[in-house]
Design a protein around this nucleic acid. Structure first.
Lengths: 326, 326
DNA sequence: TTTTTTAAAGCAAACGTTTTCATAAATAAT
DNA sequence: ATTATTTATGAAAACGTTTGCTTTAAAAAA
C-alpha cells in the first residue's frame, strides 16, 4: 500500500513550506498566484486530502454533531434526523447517530463516546436528564421533543398536552363515551404529557375509561390491543405505531375500524395517511423540528453568546378514516 | 469555562508521568496496583475523559465506520442501518451516516468527507461505482444491496432477479394475464435487476404489459398509479413504497385492491404487513443484511488479509391480501 | 552484602495539522 | 538610490495522545 500523503509531501513536491500549503488549502492568508498554482497542482497530482483529525486536534473543533435518539428505525426519528442532517450538512457539519433504545445507561455511554470524539454539539432525544453529565462534558446540547425547565438548556418540542387535548375534545364532540388509552413509557416526556392530557380529560368530563401501559411500538399496540376485552368507543393510542398494532389486533378479531371502534394515533408519521383505515392522529412537524433543532445548535456554535433559544411547535389534529361519530 | 482536562493534568494530580496514566487507561503494560489507584482516583476527581482525536491521530484509526445510503427516512435503509450499527457498536465502533439522495456527485463528496475524517471503513449503498475514488482513498468498503463483479470489493446483496421471478411466477400461476410494472431508477442495481426479471418474464410468457418508469418513493407510486388508464390484472411495483402510492391512488379512484386489481411490492418493510390490504411482496432480510455487511467490514478491519467476502441473500415471496386469483 | 534479573515508571518523539512570529521579498514613498 | 511599508513565505510550537527506549526501583540470585 502506498504511503499516506501528508501536507509535507505536498510541500516538498511544490518546493514550498508546509505553512504555505496550509494557507492555500484554507485561504487563511494571501499567497502568490503562481505558488498557489504549484501547490494546487501538487495536491492534485499526489491526490492529497487533509487529515481532519490532525486539523481538529489543532483547531479545537470537529465540524461534527452527535445525535442521540431512541431508534432510527422508528420513522418518527428517521424523519427528525433527516431534517437535522440536511441542515447541518449544508453548513458543513457531519452527523454521528446513536441509538439508545431508551435505556438510560446506554444514553450515558453514548454521551461519553460523543464527548471523547469531541463533537461540537449534541442533539438529544431520550429519557434521562443527565444534567450532571452535561455540566461535565461541557458541550452545547439541544433537547428534542422535550421541555426543559432548566434555562441553561435549549430545546425544541411540541405541545403534546394541547395536541392530545384537541384530539380528545374532538372525540368527545363526536360522541365517543368510552375510552381506552394506551400510553407510551411514562419516562418519555411526550408520553407523559399525552397521558396527563388524557387524565385531565377523564376528570373533566367524568368519562368511562381504561388505561393500558404500553410503549411506542407496533408490537406494544398488538399486545395491548389483545388485552382489550370490552370494546370501547375509541382506543386512543399514544403514538401512531401503537395504533397500527391495535388495528392489526382488531383485524385478527374481526373487529372493524372505524365501524365497531375508533382508533387514534399521534405523530402523523408518513405512513399514517397510507394506512387503512387512514389514521386519525395529531401531526407534528417532524422534519421541521429536526431542522430547527439543528439551526439552534448551529447558532449556539457560531456565536458563543449565552443565547439559549427554545422552540415550541403547535400540533395539528388531523381527522381521517379511523374514527367516526358514535 | 473550566480549562480542558488533559492527560497531563491527571499525571500531575496523581504525581506520575503521562505515560503511566496512558498505560492505566489502556492497560497496555503493567502498572503497580497502588499507582494505578492514584491515577484512577485522579481521573475520577478531575473528571477526565481522553481525547479520541489525539488518540486516533497517534494510533492511526478512529473506530468509526461511515455509512452512505440514499435516505435514512426510507424505512428500508433505516432498518439496514440499525442492523449495521447494532453490530458495530457492540464491537466498539461508532457510525457516521450520510444521505446521498442517490446523487452521484453527492456520493463523491461524502466519500471525500469520510476519507478526511479517517473512518476505518465504509458501508456503501448507492448509484455510482466510484472505483477510482476507492483506489484513491484506500479505505475498506463493502457494497450493500448490489453485486460487484470487481473481486477487489466485498458486497452483500440479495437475489433481486430471483425474488422478482418467484413473484411473477406466482402471479402467473394465479391467473394474472395483464401486467403493469412500475420500476425504480434503473441506475440502482436492485431496480435494474427487478426490471430485468420482469422483462425476461414478459418475453418468456408473452404476456400483455405496460412499463412505467418511477423511483423508489411513495410519491412516485401515487403519480404513476394515476397514469394507469387501463386497469390490468396486477400492478407490480419495484418496491413497497411505490405500491403504497399506487394503492392510495386507486383508492381515490374507487378502484379496489385486490378486488379490481392486484398490487405487489418488494422489500417487505415493516409497514407492509400493517398496510391494508396487507401487501403481497418479496421479503429481504433487511436488518440481517445490515448486520452481515457490518460483520464483513469488521473482519476486513481486524485481519488485514485480502479476504474479500461476499454474501448473497435469498428473498422470500410473501403472499398477503393485496393479490388474488383472477 | 553485592550482583543480576525483572518489573515499573519516565522521557521524548511522533502522528498531521494550524498559526504566531520572524524574516525575506517586493513595492511604495522619500 | 535609499528608506519605509506592505506582502509573501518559512520556522517552529502547539494540539493530546501512544509507545519505543532508557532509567530507576524492586526483587531474586549469588
Amino acid at each position: 500500500m502506498p504511503d499516506k500523503i501528508t501536507i509535507k509531501d505536498i510541500a516538498k513536491e511544490a518546493g514550498v513550506s508546509i505553512s504555505t500549503v496550509s494557507r492555500v488549502i484554507n485561504g487563511s492568508s494571501p499567497v502568490k498566484k503562481q505558488t498557489k498554482e504549484k501547490v494546487l497542482k501538487a495536491i492534485d497530482k499526489l491526490n492529497y486530502y487533509p487529515d481532519a483529525l490532525a486539523r481538529s486536534l489543532r483547531v479545537g473543533y470537529t465540524d461534527t454533531i452527535g445525535i442521540i435518539i431512541p431508534n432510527i428505525a422508528n420513522p418518527f426519528f428517521a424523519t427528525l434526523v433527516r431534517g437535522a442532517e440536511d441542515y447541518l450538512r449544508s453548513k458543513g457539519y457531519s452527523v454521528i447517530i446513536c441509538n439508545s433504545d431508551n435505556a438510560v445507561d446506554q444514553e450515558e455511554k453514548l454521551f461519553n463516546i460523543l464527548a471523547e470524539k469531541k463533537v461540537d454539539g449534541i442533539l438529544y432525544s431520550g429519557i434521562g436528564d443527565h444534567i450532571d453529565k452535561f455540566n461535565q462534558i461541557n458541550i452545547p446540547i439541544v433537547f428534542i421533543d422535550r421541555v426543559i425547565k432548566d434555562n441553561r438548556f435549549s430545546y425544541v418540542s411540541s405541545n403534546h398536552y394541547k395536541g392530545m387535548e384537541d384530539l380528545l375534545n374532538y372525540l368527545y364532540s363526536t360522541n365517543h363515551k368510552k375510552y381506552v388509552f394506551i400510553s407510551g413509557k411514562k419516562e418519555i416526556f411526550s408520553a407523559f404529557e399525552r397521558l396527563r392530557a388524557f387524565e385531565d380529560f377523564t376528570k373533566k368530563y367524568n368519562v368511562e375509561y381504561e388505561l393500558l401501559e404500553g410503549e411506542y411500538t407496533y408490537k406494544s399496540g398488538l399486545i395491548n390491543g389483545k388485552k382489550i376485552k370490552k370494546i370501547p368507543d375509541v382506543v386512543v393510542c399514544s403514538n401512531d405505531l401503537i395504533a397500527y398494532g391495535v388495528v392489526e389486533s382488531f383485524k385478527e378479531r374481526k373487529i372493524k375500524v372505524p365501524e365497531d371502534v375508533s382508533v387514534t394515533g399521534y405523530d402523523d408519521i408518513m405512513f399514517s395517511k397510507m394506512f387503512s383505515p387512514a389514521l386519525t392522529t395529531v401531526s407534528q412537524p417532524i422534519y421541521e423540528m429536526g431542522k430547527v433543532a439543528a439551526e439552534i445548535i448551529y447558532r449556539l456554535l457560531i456565536k458563543k453568546d449565552d443565547y439559549m433559544p427554545v422552540k415550541l411547535f403547535q400540533n395539528q389534529l388531523v381527522v381521517r378514516e379511523s374514527t367516526r361519530r358514535r
